[in-house]
Amino acid sequence: MKRVVFRSKWLPYVLLAPQIAITLIFFFWPALRAIESSFFIEDAFGFAREFVAFENYARLFNDAGYLKSFRTTLVFGLGVTALAMSIALVLAVAANRVLQAALTYRTFIIWPYAVAPALAGVIWFFLMNPTLGIVAYWLDLAGYEWNHYQNGDQALLMVTIAAAWKQISYNFLFFLAGLQSIPKSMLEAAAIDRAGPWRRFWTITFPLLSPTTFFLLVINLVYAFFDTFSLIHATTQGGPADATSILVLRVYQTGFVGQDYGSSAAQSVILMGLVIALTVVQFRYVERRVNY
């Protein structure tokens, strides 16, 4: 590889400056403000603020509802990731073998990614509406009573499906690219050694896909933890009871609905810690242990 050498000392900094400015203004500054606010209690209009040290955090960890949100977020995150990745993998393997009309087939699978998360949620919400929805009607015919307004598990299942459905396309693209980069010769050699398709998949394809898989694992978790806010906000709004109230939704409810900025900031800081932890895991462990 050819190494680029800058003659001028300041040029690299100038070239980096816009990106650094954006990072500082839109990431570091708000993050610092959030950390600061999390130590205060403040009225909505900002007339007075009182320093309370760690009270906002202490309250959160004594709040059974907040702790339950952790569990809900975890169940939701793992559910979305498992569902979206497994279906995407099956589709990608299938698509990789399709010879005719492959492009059309792929286009249709990628399509849902263009749907905004809130819309994806609303579509599923409508399909499963206990009064109007077609899926609820089928379930009713099958003798299963569906009412996600009342049943928390059903509501959580519904938002999990909606969130996963949208993410399948993204995962599919990466899996397909990963599959296409696996050398044909290895698979052919295995086939000559009388390894069946199933065995070939688990001993050759799947291990070779592991970098993609781990990358997607982190991306999907982050997606489920954060980007699904609009989906849940547009559909269940955390209900029924608090069955679908994931952490990021609580930040919004506390800060924007409740105007309790201190607690909302404390929750953001906790979430920020979570993302940092996930990123560290990805860089330190995952990227190293994967065989390329």
Partner: peptide, 21 residues
């Protein structure tokens, strides 16, 4: 005060009644 949030609390608790929890 905070009645928007309190209404959500009431929503949550009532939903627990409707579901029989």
């Amino acid at each position: 005060g905070s009645f928007v949030q309190i209404r959500d609390v009431i929503n949550e608790e009532l939903e627990a009644v409707w579901s029989g929890d």
